[in-house]
């Protein structure tokens, strides 16, 4: 699975960075539920994450299953590489 282009890794890392912010904000808000600033930041990053994933999935196939991502024309889910293979 060495045939992946450079931008696969770049765009994936961008998604990982944005989603990390969301994980951090999630745990923070679990114990600070009244922090309105953090909630606004959370929603802003949630939107940003969705944008990045839409662009990534259009090139490299679905990230999620059960209808949370749209499928490509030939069910790339099982064909495209898994995280430990890249």
């Amino acid at each position: 699975m060495n045939s992946l282009p450079e931008n696969y890794y770049q765009e994936l890392e961008q998604i990982q960075a944005v989603d990390f912010v969301l994980v951090e904000l999630t745990l923070y808000l679990d114990t600070h539920p009244d922090d309105v600033k953090a909630i606004n930041q959370f929603n802003q990053y949630a939107q940003y994450s969705k944008q990045l994933k839409r662009a990534f999935e259009a090139q490299f196939g679905p990230l999620q299953q059960y209808g949370n991502s749209f499928s490509d024309a030939n069910w790339g889910w099982g064909r495209l590489p898994w995280p430990w293979q890249v």
């Binding site: 990982q16 989603d19 999620q64 495209l80 995280p83």
Partner: peptide, 12 residues
Amino acid sequence: WIYEKKLQYPVK
């Protein structure tokens, strides 16, 4: 639970 086809942080 929904699986997401990515690692939380890159592993090299």
